[in-house]
Amino acid sequence: MLPEELLQHIAKGDKDAFRQLYELFKARVYNTCLSYLQNASDAEEATQDVFVEIHHAAAKYQGNAGAATWIYRITVNKCLDRLRYNNRQKRFSFLTSIFNRDTGVLMHDTPTFEHPGVKAENREQSVMLFQAIRQLPENQQTAFILKQIEGLSQKEIANIMGLGEKAVESLLQRAKANLRKILSDYYKSGEG
């Protein structure tokens, strides 16, 4: 059954269709969430949010966009919401206590992230890449993650982000330029 048909069945309360759609999209949704949030537990929570939203909004799915585009759109929005929430928490941590009362460990500290699917020889570089991605503006982050990590085409990204293909191309160029700058600053600080 096609994902679009599965969504129609989910809207009618078909639990089996929901399970099938989950199996079809769980890796895509979770991998995208992991790339944004860079934390397995946050990514699992965001994946839950995405599928709960899919279940509740299936009846509203119009079919104007493909099911994958619709699901990616929900995923990106949920991840950005969670990122904003995490950033707010970090900001307010200076007003409240920044240390965990029980362990004394610094809270809201972002540890280095190793993607579980990366090739062993690229592990070190990918850690630096994810650190740099965190510093990009939201729309550049989205374009870069969907292109470079999810491997989507510019047309698919344009549909997900509601932009033209040219705009996506420009976003990708700016994202790469910014990443190069962030990485060169990182090297300079390492040399100094």
Binding site: N31, V118, K119, Q125
Partner: peptide
């Protein structure tokens, strides 16, 4: 720098836990 930018090439997708 280019190696870092392309370090996710050939990576496999991460999968969530079975309990999810």
């Amino acid at each position: 720098t280019e190696d870092i930018l392309n370090s996710m090439d050939g990576a496999t997708r991460a999968v969530p836990s079975d309990a999810l």
